[in-house]
Nucleic acid binder design. Structure first.
Lengths: 187, 187
DNA sequence: CCCTCTATCTTGTCAATGGCAAGATAGACT
DNA sequence: AGTCTATCTTGCCATTGACAAGATAGAGGG
């Protein structure tokens, strides 16, 4: 993509973006390390050195995804509805990351990098979810947070799976805002 | 599994259940046709005759899944909350089917069998979702239905992915009922 | 009872893949 | 200049998915 200071210089990053592209095109199951190597213009065993094996590459991708999600949620500010929309936007813009992140059989969930990034995303998520405006104080706030998370996650997953009966080229954000508003705008 | 009238007699069904088991254990990406053949005690090329290729097998599995989902929703009666819980219960009890169904890259979405079963499930779902008790008549009911579907689907997906911070051996149904109640019990 | 026919399954083969081992090479550091 | 290490390559093997050709069981007709 960029310059190539021989030894490729940034193979690791190039492989990760190639993986994201390939997964977006054909899904995580069809991912081939050799195909990634071809796309990056290196030999078929080059990825091994950076990621060990396929699971290792997906682990790195998941870690990257959690970091991106944390950033996305952090940028949404204190507004609950805006955070939910940001969650959906992240899933759609970074479809490959999102799909890998929530398919735990594909990567090493216990990897330290992943755990750290996931914790950071988890904190951002908790902050966003607890910013519920008319929150009844004594109520079970954990359940309310889980409900909000479920709705945002479910909308994103359904959209990505193509299960929604709407036109697939429609901009999902306004629809997401309406749907999430069903729960978030409650008094 | 049952008797074996030679020629196995029920290879197709045996392969489908073996596939469901294997996917539940290791995820859809790790599915191997040859492994299924070994489990069923047949030669490595036997599955080809029944399903054509791997995608064909997953197509059959998805069709079976939509039928099971339609039955599950139909059995939940008119209660909206109960239907939501049934949706979650289906996803957990038939994890393999659920995962394949909503990963459209894995199978042929246009297959007639799949389309028919999906339509049936879709009708059951619409019936369940429109059974909202305090439904404001003039309101955008489609958005409300989508919100309910998103929440049930999202809770199921999060639970299956292991992303929820709760104990994984806990019974998910009471939790699901509480979470879904956040939206469904609105006046 | 025998013959044929069809669905079902087996054997054999090939290209592609993931993963490992051993070697080569660039560039950094001294 | 010499050495060292990270990075990448070449070569190899077992496994897999897919296909082609053949074998076999069992049904149905004469």
């Amino acid at each position: 993509m960029t310059d190539r200071p021989y030894h490729h210089g940034n193979l690791r990053s190039a492989l990760l973006t190639a993986a994201a592209t390939a997964i977006t095109e054909k899904g995580p199951a069809a991912l081939s390390l050799r195909d990634l190597a071809r796309r990056a213009g290196v030999s078929h065993a080059a990825p091994t050195h950076h990621f060990g094996d396929k699971t290792g590459l997906l682990t790195a991708l998941a870690a990257e995804g959690y970091t991106l999600l944390a950033d996305a949620l952090g940028g949404a500010g204190d507004d609950l509805l805006e955070s939910g929309v940001a969650y959906v936007r992240f899933a759609i813009e970074h479809r490959a990351h999102f799909e890998v992140m929530f398919q735990p059989g594909l990567y090493h969930r216990d990897d330290p990098q992943v755990a750290a990034a996931r914790d950071r995303a988890g904190r951002s998520l908790t902050i966003a979810l607890s910013a519920r405006p008319g929150q009844p104080p004594g109520q079970d706030s954990e359940t309310a947070e889980l409900a909000a998370w479920s709705m945002a996650h479910g909308f994103a997953a359904l959209w990505l799976s193509g299960a929604l009966p709407t036109a697939p080229d429609l901009d999902p954000e306004p629809l997401a805002k309406n749907v999430l508003g069903q729960l978030f705008d409650q008094p």
